[in-house]
């Protein structure tokens, strides 16, 4: 199947998923309101803290708002496309329903990821935009044409990196049937808590961890190209995030093929 056709089939599946998602509109508005309350409640508290302490790791509140906002832009897109499939991979595998992705003339990974969309991703992405605007309002970012242009590849790279990392964790489900514990560590702890703040406040080992498992390239390193921060050895690393994304994706593609290839499935 040609790339072009695969691309159009992909978007067809996404459209179908969006239509399906819209059928469960029930608490939709309420859920989005809650997401916003959680995001901005958290931001408010961080602002209050920094009103007292002024700086964290040399970063101001405006810097932090940008950091969080940049991450949410990527995270929102990830949540929209990939969250459902990856978060619920365990049940897909243990119930044996996974096989339905394996009997079409389309790569299994595409079918797997295109099972459902999560419309909350739109809200999250929107929150990211608001936070970036907020950061701009505090003077943390001075926008130039170059920086505006940089935003798209950085966010796109962020999406791919986030997807790759979580997909890699999800692959462990092929082997152990239960990716929950590792998923919890990576997603909630590393992915959410640690990434709220600049990585330089953590010790070297943790920084290294979040560089090799390239979560740091989603927002931390790229932030240096937008904010006016003191120069560090890694100030330009953010510009390489698209490359990191490609490398991460290649790795996870290979991991996926190996894992799904040796997965026996249920039944015999």
């Amino acid at each position: 199947m040609s790339g072009v056709r695969l691309w159009s089939v992909f978007w067809m599946l996404v459209r179908y998923n969006v239509r399906s998602s819209l059928m469960y509109r029930g608490n939709f508005v309420m859920q989005q309101v809650l997401t916003l309350v959680a995001q901005f409640g958290q931001l408010y508290l961080i602002a209050a803290v920094l009103a007292q302490f002024h700086l964290i790791g040399g970063w101001t509140f405006g810097d932090l708002a940008f950091l969080i906002g940049l991450r949410l832009l990527a995270h929102g897109i990830y949540v929209f496309f990939c969250w459902m499939a990856i978060t619920f991979v365990d049940s897909d595998l243990t119930s044996g329903a996974f096989i339905r992705h394996q009997v079409r003339p389309i790569p299994t990974l595409v079918l797997f990821l295109c099972q459902a969309t999560n419309l909350s991703g739109v809200t999250i992405f929107g929150s990211g935009i608001v936070m970036v605007i907020l950061a701009t309002a505090t003077g943390a970012v001075h926008w130039t044409l170059a920086r505006v242009g940089l935003l798209v590849p950085v966010v796109a790279a962020g999406v791919i990196i986030e997807m790759s990392v979580f997909l890699a964790v999800a692959c462990t489900a092929f082997w152990t049937g239960n990716s929950s514990p590792l998923f919890g560590v990576v997603y909630e702890t590393l992915g959410e808590q640690f990434l709220l703040y600049p990585l330089n406040i953590y010790n070297l080992t943790v920084q290294l961890l979040l560089t090799v498992v390239p979560l740091g390239f989603i927002s931390f390193y790229p932030a240096y190209s937008f904010l006016s921060l003191p120069a560090e050895p890694w100030s330009h690393w953010g510009l390489y995030s698209p490359l990191v994304a490609i490398a991460a994706f290649t790795l996870v593609w290979w991991l996926w093929r190996t894992s799904s290839g040796s997965y026996q499935g249920t039944g015999s």
């Binding site: 199947m1 179908y16 239509r19 399906s20 044996g96 096989i99 339905r100 009997v103 389309i106 790569p107």
Partner: peptide, 22 residues
């Protein structure tokens, strides 16, 4: 596999391959 599956149909009595909500 992908080439073959264009000419092979599979039906699972216990798992739906249809789009549930549509």
């Amino acid at each position: 596999r992908l080439q073959l599956l264009r000419r092979v149909g599979v039906l699972f009595g216990q798992r739906s391959q249809l789009w549930w909500d549509l």
